[in-house]
Structure formats: structure tokens, C-alpha cells
Amino acid sequence: MTAILPFIRVPDVAFAKSWYETIGFKCIGTHEEPDCGLDWAMMCWDEAKFMLYPQLENTITNANNCGLYFKMDTIVGLEKRLEGKAKIIETVTKTEYGRKEITFHDCYGFQVTFSSEPD
């Protein structure tokens, strides 16, 4: 196995793609069907990647049961970048496993955590 590429299903792929770009992710691939709009996007930050897919018909996105966890070189400055864009759940200067973390909800309520070694 070489990599894992998680995905989250969202009501509007284009909106989620734009939101993630505002906090620092880059879109490195998309797919769009004629008259259907954007139906897939690959997001990345350095080497970390995940995908956005459209929510399936007649289903409810259950953001409470899904999230993304990113290990980063540093999270300095990320709280300021998230200001006004995300609901910050928790900022921890040192977890019991020795990491510094900032956890927040994305534009659709998915929990996202950025983690780094303490400064």
C-alpha cells in the first residue's frame, strides 16, 4: 500500500472546494460532467490529499461521524487564517501524546484537525 486518499461527501463540491482553498489547500484535480456541475475535486496541502464527492441522492451527510486529521510541520498562524471562516472547536498547546492541535468545523460541519510538534 502506498497511500490513503480519504473522501468526504458534500452537498456542493464547488462550494467546498472554494472554502478549502481559502484556508490554504490547493485543488489539484477536478471532474465536471456537462450540465451537472463539479462532481469531484482533489485537494492537497503539501503531500496530504483528500477528495470531495457529491452527497448521494436521498442521503444526509453525517458530518458527526467523519473528519480529517492532518499532521503538519507547523500550525503557527493557522488560527488567524481560520478566523471568520471556520468554527474553532479546540486549540491544544500540548496533547497527552505530545502534539499541538487546532480542531475546527469546515463549511459543512466536518471536523478537521491540524496537528504539529509543539513549538
Rank of each mutant, 00 (worst) to 15 (best):
F50W: 08
M51C: 14
G98W: 03
C27T: 14
I60M: 10
F50C: 07
N64M: 08
E21F: 05
R81Y: 04
Y69L: 11
A14W: 05
E90D: 15
A48H: 12
G24E: 03
P34F: 05
T93E: 08
L82A: 03
T61Y: 00
Q55S: 12
T59H: 13
G67K: 05
F104Y: 09
V13L: 00
D35P: 04
I88Y: 02
E57M: 15
C66W: 01
E32N: 13
V76Y: 04
F7E: 08
T2I: 13
C36K: 13
I23W: 00
R81G: 01
I60D: 02
A14S: 13
R81W: 00
A48P: 14
V92F: 01
T59S: 13
I88V: 15
N64R: 08
L56P: 15
C44E: 09
K94Y: 02
M43H: 03
L5Q: 04
A14P: 06
G37V: 07
T113R: 01
E21R: 14
W40C: 05
K71N: 14
E33C: 14
H31M: 11
I23Q: 03
A16I: 00
P34I: 01
T22I: 08
V76E: 09
K94R: 15
N65A: 15
T30Y: 04
I8K: 01
P54M: 04
T74A: 06
E32M: 12
M42Q: 10
E83L: 07
V112L: 00
R9S: 13
D73V: 07
K17L: 13
K49W: 01
E33N: 14
F70R: 02
K26I: 07
A63N: 11
T22M: 07
P34L: 05
T103Y: 01
K17M: 12
L5A: 10
K87L: 08
T2F: 07
F70K: 09
A16R: 00
D73K: 09
T2L: 12
G24L: 04
G84C: 06
Q55T: 15
T93V: 05
K17Q: 13
E33P: 10
D46A: 09
D12S: 10
L38W: 04
K80C: 03
